[in-house]
Design a binder for these strands. Structure first.
Lengths: 189, 189
DNA sequence: CAAAAACGTTGCGGTAGAGCAATGTTTAAG
DNA sequence: CTTAAACATTGCTCTACCGCAACGTTTTTG
């Protein structure tokens, strides 16, 4: 149950089995069905999730009712509504399982306690923040000011997993275009 | 020279004057002229900057030669090419002073040493990362999928300082639209 | 395995914003 | 204070993307 998480932490921080065994009990197993919604807009996010298998989608719904996806968490990734988790205000994003998934869930309180007491978890949190930031920057710079076709090419180059594993509807939501436009673009490649 | 930085740190972490005096010598004063470029695309960013007065612009230039601005650092803000600073790869963004500015500069090495040895600086770095992330998220969600007019209204509500202090050219670059479009929009308000 | 629902594709028309050029205005520099 | 340069505005045209509708295909579910 904790093999993947241990591998992940060991890889990033070189944590020992002993130290890990002090952290792992705080992570609870949570199984979710396909399409199950884990967090809704307006709710305060109180957990951090590590994906053992499956895939989570983090998205918001804008004024016109369109989904806009910021992040897909596949296996061996942490994911949470970070803004909401950090300041404990209502989330503007949803978390939903795209596939039947197995998650390791840790409460906000336990997580930040580990961040403050276990150096390796502090490192992991720093790493999560850095990665999240760098990713979001790449996204802004990589996508803005480009045509949708260029965005698609960028995605093919840097995030091929998203293209190969997800439906056009999800991909379009990630790119911020309509499935119609995506369909047309694919025929131009 | 260090009053503003001390106030900033004290406000965020409650640091004592004594602890602060151990950190402050690492921050060197740097004065820059209006329009002076502090970091160019392709260079590796080796410093973190605290703005004592003036304003820094963080932007990239896309394939069509257009500026895209991600952040303006006014007084009492830290700013750096964070992605480059973190992984020490060439920066894809420029840092430029919009006005004659007075900066406190700390080297990457000194900064991360402080992060790892001074709890209050660790907190500050976490805070910088969290803020940077939350801001970039707000930007993605707040701007994408909206019309340029809505973007402008959003900016008026949440970042009025940018509108009041900067030229239309800078504002347009921040919104990812042309100055022409911005000019037209303003007449519609 | 059959019916329904979700998803993908394609054509048509509409619109927001870009590019360019012309002109007026503000800022900067000698 | 004067001249040049940068910036702002506005009209015209063009294009990328959207919305909707119609139709075919795949997936889900009872």
């Amino acid at each position: 149950m904790y093999e993947l998480l241990f591998k992940y932490l060991q890889n990033k921080t070189g944590i020992s089995e002993k130290n890990f065994s002090e952290c792992s009990p705080y992570f609870k197993l949570k199984e979710v069905k396909k399409n199950e919604i884990i967090l809704r807009e307006g709710e305060v996010c109180r957990s951090n999730y590590f994906v053992n298998n499956g895939c989570l989608k983090f998205y918001s719904i804008n004024d016109e009712g369109h989904q806009l996806t910021r992040y897909f968490a596949f296996e061996s990734k942490f994911g949470t509504a970070l803004s909401s988790l950090i300041d404990q205000k209502p989330s503007f994003e949803y978390i939903q399982a795209i596939e039947k998934s197995e998650l390791l869930m840790i409460s906000r309180q336990d997580f930040f306690q580990l961040v403050n007491t276990v150096p390796q978890i502090n490192t992991i949190y720093r790493d999560i923040l850095e990665m999240a930031y760098v990713t979001s920057q790449k996204r802004i710079y990589g996508l803005q000011g480009k045509t949708a076709l260029d965005q698609l090419k960028w995605l093919m180059e840097y995030q091929p997993k998203i293209l190969s594993r997800l439906s056009n509807k999800e991909i379009a939501s990630y790119l911020g275009i309509t499935p119609f436009t995506l369909s047309r673009l694919k025929s131009q490649l």
